[in-house]
Design a protein around this nucleic acid. Sequence first.
DNA 1: ATTATATATAACCAATTGGTTATATAAGAA
DNA 2: TTCTTATATAACCAATTGGTTATATATAAT
Lengths: 106, 106
Amino acid sequence: MPDIYRALGDPTRRRILSMLKRGNKTQKEIVEAFAISQPAIKKHLAILLEEKIIAQEFQGKYRIYRLNLDSLQIAYNEMLQYIGDLLDNQLASLKDYVEKGEIRDE
Amino acid sequence: MPDIYRALGDPTRRRILSMLKRGNKTQKEIVEAFAISQPAIKKHLAILLEEKIIAQEFQGKYRIYRLNLDSLQIAYNEMLQYIGDLLDNQLASLKDYVEKGEIRDE
DNA sequence: ATTATATATAACCAATTGGTTATATAAGAA
DNA sequence: TTCTTATATAACCAATTGGTTATATATAAT
C-alpha cells in the first residue's frame, strides 16, 4: 500500500505535488523551481514514485512527471476516513454521499 | 505548527490515537496494548505530544493521555484542504458549508 | 522503612531521510 | 564525432526514527 504519510511528510514533496497539479513537468523544470540539487530532487521524486503518488513517462532524454490522481484519491479517502473517525466527523459518510452522485452541482 | 504527517506517519501512533478515541488512557494501559517496550511507547507519546495531537495530565504516579481534538481538527482541515486542492475536490468547500450549519442532520 | 509499581532517562543500534559533491550515462544538437 | 544537456548513480554526512536493555526516580501500598 502506498504510504501517503511518508509521501506527504516533506514540504518539498508537497510543493512538487502542487507544481504537478498545475501541469506535467520534466525533472529539469522541477529542479529549477527549487534551491536544492538535482540528486536531492531525484530522491524526492523516487519517494513519490515509490508511493505511487506520481507517475513517470520516458520521452527521449526527458522524464515527465504527473500526478497519479487515482492513488491520490484512494490515499485521500483513507486519511479522510481515519482522521474523520477520530473526530467523529460525518464528513466521511457525507463524502460517500457526494460521490454516489446524490448531490450534483452541474 | 504541529506536523500532522509526522504524527500520523507511524502505524503504532495511529493505533494509539484510535485507542485514545475510545477513552483516555494511562501510559501503562497503552504500553500493555502493544508488544513493544515502555520506552518505545514513551517515544511515540512524546512525538504525539510534541505535535500537540494528544495532551497529558499528571495524576499521582500516572500520566493520563487524551486526544487533543482541537489541534486534530485544525490539522485535519489543512490536510483536507491541501489534498482536496490537488484533486480538485469540492469537499473542502462542502466542508465549510457543513460547518457553517447550512446542513444539519438533527 | 521497605517494597512494588508507573514513569523517565540513558546509552546503544540499525535503518531512513534529506541533503551534499563528484561523476557516469544517455540522448540530442552542431 | 564532439559538445551539450538531462538524468542517474555513488559516496558521503548529519539528523531522525523506532526499537532495544538497563537503570533511575517518583509515588503508593504494606
